[in-house]
Each structure stands twice: as C-alpha cells, then as structure tokens.
Design a protein around this nucleic acid. Structure first.
Lengths: 244, 244
DNA sequence: CGGCCATCCTGACAAATGTCCGGTTTGAAC
DNA sequence: GTTCAAACCGGACATTTGTCAGGATGGCCG
C-alpha cells in the first residue's frame, strides 16, 4: 500500500447525512437518545414489513411502546423518522465500502470483493432493502443526498479498479462495473427469498469469483458503442426521470 | 437446436397469473377492456411516481379520467388494480426470458445474454421497478405466485447453463449465477438514476461480456463451503422471513 | 409534606381515504 | 317521441390517518 494511495481522500468520505429535525420540549439528552432508538428500531421493522407509506404512527408507537402524543417530543414527524433510520443504517460508517477495502493493496481483488459482500450482507441487509424501497417517499433533497453518496462511492471504486488493473486511461466501462458491484452488494438482501438453502459463504465466494471475472472481462476488447437499437419503450425512472 | 432441447417444456411457461376479480354491473366487454386499460395505465405511472400505498384511488381516477364511483364497475378494489397491472407488466409473455432465448443453441452465450438484457430493459423497465417495490403490498398468495414464477425461471436457466457449459452434475453455484442474471435484468431500471451518460448499448455489451465471464468463472475450482464466519446480524427478509 | 417541573398520555381534531348508494344522463330501438 | 336498460357520477358513509393541546403523573428538592 503506497503512501500516495493510502492517503488518497475518498470522495465518499465527504458525503453528508440527511438533515434531522430539532425538537424542543424534552431536556434529558440520554432519554432523547434512548426513546429515539426505540422509535427507530420499531420503525425499521415495520417499514420492512409493510412499507413506509403503509406503516402508521400508531403502529410505530405500539411496537416501540412510546405514546402517540409523546412521539412528537422525540421526532418531528413521520418523515423525520425515515431520515433518522436511513442515517443510522444506510450511512453507517462501521461497514466498509469497497473502495475503502481496496485501499489495502496487499489484499487480492477477489478477497476484497468477498469481504465487501460478506460485510454488506451481514450488516447492511436492512439498509439495502430500506433504501431501495423508500427512495420514492423521500423529498427531492434527501434523494439527492443519497444519490450523491452513491455516485461518490462509484467514482472512488472506478478509480481504485483502474489502479488495480493497471489501466492508464479512464474507461467508462469501469463505472458500469463499479455500479454493478454496488448493486450486487444489495443482491442477497433483495433476493433472499430465493436460494435459501445455499450457505451464505458459498454465496459470497461464488459471487466474488464471478464478480472478479466480470471486472477483468469488462475492460477487455474494444469499447462497445451504441448500435442501431430503437429507443426504450418507457421513460419512467425510479425516482428521477431519466429522460426528463 | 436439437429436437430434444427445443421441445423441452420450460417450467416457467406453466406459471400462473395473479387472480383477477370478477365484476358484475357493466356488460359491454370491449368497454370494460378499454376502461381497465385507462385505469391500469394511470395506475402504473402513479405507482412508480409515488408508490402503491401513497397513491390514492382519487389520483388514479383523476389521471385515468374515470369517475371515482365508476371505477368500481371496472376493478374490484385498489389491490385488484395492482394485480392487473402486475399481470400485464411482470407476467407479460412477449418479452423472452433468458432460458427461452437459450433454447437456440446456435446463439452464443454472450449474445443471448446481451439480447436478454436489451429486451428486458427496453420492455420491462416499469415491471422490474414495480415488482421490486410493490411486493410488500401484495397478499401472501400473490407473493407466492410471483416467487414461484421466479424460481421456475431460475431453475430453467440453471438447466440451460448446465447444458451450455457441458457439465454433468448439478452445481448449486449455477443456481446462484442464474439468480444473479435475473437480478441483473433489473439492474438498469433499478439504478438508472446513475450512469446516465452511458449509452444503453454500451451498457448491454459491457454487462453481457461481464456476465458471461462471471458464469464461466463461477463453476471453476472447488465448490466453496461455509467458513467460520459469524452469523448475520439481522434476520429480516424482504417479505418472507428468511429464518422464520 | 408540599411545590415544581420534566415527562407522559387521554382524548380529540381536521383532513384524507376506500368504498359505494342512489339518482341522472345517454342513446339505441321501436 | 317514448321507453328502458346501460353507463355515469354527485355526494356521502365510516374509518383511518397525522398531529397535537392540555391535563395527569411522578419524582426530586426543600
């Protein structure tokens, strides 16, 4: 791990959390933290079970054992709960991103990827599901924050891969591959209703091997260009319009 | 394309649609079809924009220009609309599945995959997004129908790949790879808020090349077994509990 | 014991929602 | 022009929702 690489500031490290509201009434700071934790814990479970919009404040109160009126002493409103939950789970810093793992140049690519998948699936299961499902319920500025974070991670990853593969020039295809890798880190949570009888570690190693091959293969040969394909049938993106 | 292969009944072909309700009042069958189409078209747009739970019947009526009372002459209720929409988009039969494409043994693997991605992204954008997002809102029996369909496609795909790769025995890893391929067919729709400046065909060819390499790499070497990794932190699956 | 203040919670409000009753309009057949 | 069923729709229902005002409660200090 050369000094230059190690010291390289990762763009993603600068990404910001979603803004949380301030509340006025309750004073005891530790109590606030505790109640908020109760609320968020219950909320995550419910959001995953029923979806954000179908979860009511009453549901959250019942499960978190916080009174229906009191809850507004600890969170500003329903959307504030979602923001806090995402800050805790999606933006958590104890789960390394792949570009961070790749800073260790001693670690072979495949092992790095395996570690990335393993940790993501172990610690960010809920976060991945939640993020992909609740994005439409976020106000535009919050969506933007999440998108910026994702883009930063992807760019970092593309940089790291470029170094690993010993490529001189930027290659657009590396961004595609980076995107896929991040996408695959949500694979197990999003699809764990299938393949249930396969041990997690088999999944990790198989996918890491496959992903490594994919990376290497992706930058071989000439860059494929757009062909004479007709335009897409639909224009609707998940949250931001693609062809706006 | 040998006769045996060509005639092989694909499991997925037998999968069933979600059950649609019967309504009594209106008689004119073509009118019913037309109104239902208006309703479903509006509903898809709205479900993608705001999510199922956040979309109101009034929204759908406004956009489809069907009266709030009349809508119940054409669909049974809000959930019936979702079922009809999914039947139209998710279970549509004019978009080939990868196992179907692979029946043509003349077509090289990479080209088959490229075609699969291209067609899926062109024609099933909305369907992929909708399916991944609305599953929590479906009643258990409908979730089950969708899961069965997915599993059938995956098994078919694993079979086809086994043949292509000239493998004798079943390999669990082929199921993982099959799962990933299906997952990747939702890649562009689910993540098209990123990588927007990359032409679709570049995306298709790059990912097809990568996926092909992934398939080949996945079944090389010994089957990786479970290692001494700690258990997952969380147990919550997307819709059906993983460790119930 | 009594006062005081942080915390909790009963009960309510207005707004929104899924659903549909029962009347009104339409248009084709005679 | 009359008739009559088919299709439409204004307006309302019971319920649920997010939110909160204002009183009840409880524990600490004197």
């Amino acid at each position: 791990m050369t000094e230059a690489t190690q010291n390289k500031r990762l763009r993603a490290a600068r990404s910001e959390l979603l803004e949380e509201a301030e509340i006025g009434t309750v004073r005891n700071e530790t109590l606030i933290q505790q109640r908020r934790q109760q609320i968020c814990d219950a909320a995550v479970e419910l959001f995953l079970e029923k979806g954000f919009a179908a979860t009511t404040i009453r549901d959250i109160c019942a499960r978190s054992k916080v009174n229906q009126a009191s809850i507004y002493d600890y969170v500003a409103n329903k959307n504030d709960i979602l923001r806090r939950v995402l800050n805790q789970l999606w933006f958590r810093e104890d789960v390394p991103t792949l570009p961070e793992i790749l800073l260790d140049r001693e670690l072979p690519l495949e092992d790095a990827i395996a570690r990335y998948f393993r940790e993501s699936w172990r610690l960010k299961r809920k976060a991945s599901l939640l993020a992909y499902r609740t994005i439409p319920h976020l106000p535009p500025e919050d969506r933007r924050a999440m998108r910026l974070r994702e883009i930063a991670v992807m760019k970092d990853l593309a940089d790291q891969l470029q170094g690993r593969l010993g490529l001189e020039d930027e290659d657009k295809r590396l961004e595609i591959v980076a995107n896929v890798l991040v996408f695959l880190s949500a694979f197990a949570p999003m699809r764990d209703w299938l393949n249930r009888d396969i041990p997690d570690e088999t999944l990790v190693r198989t996918l890491a091997a496959g992903a490594t091959a994919m990376i290497r293969a992706s930058v071989e040969g000439p860059m494929p260009g757009p062909a004479a394909e007709p335009a897409p049938e639909v224009a609707t993106g998940p949250d931001t319009a693609r062809h706006a």
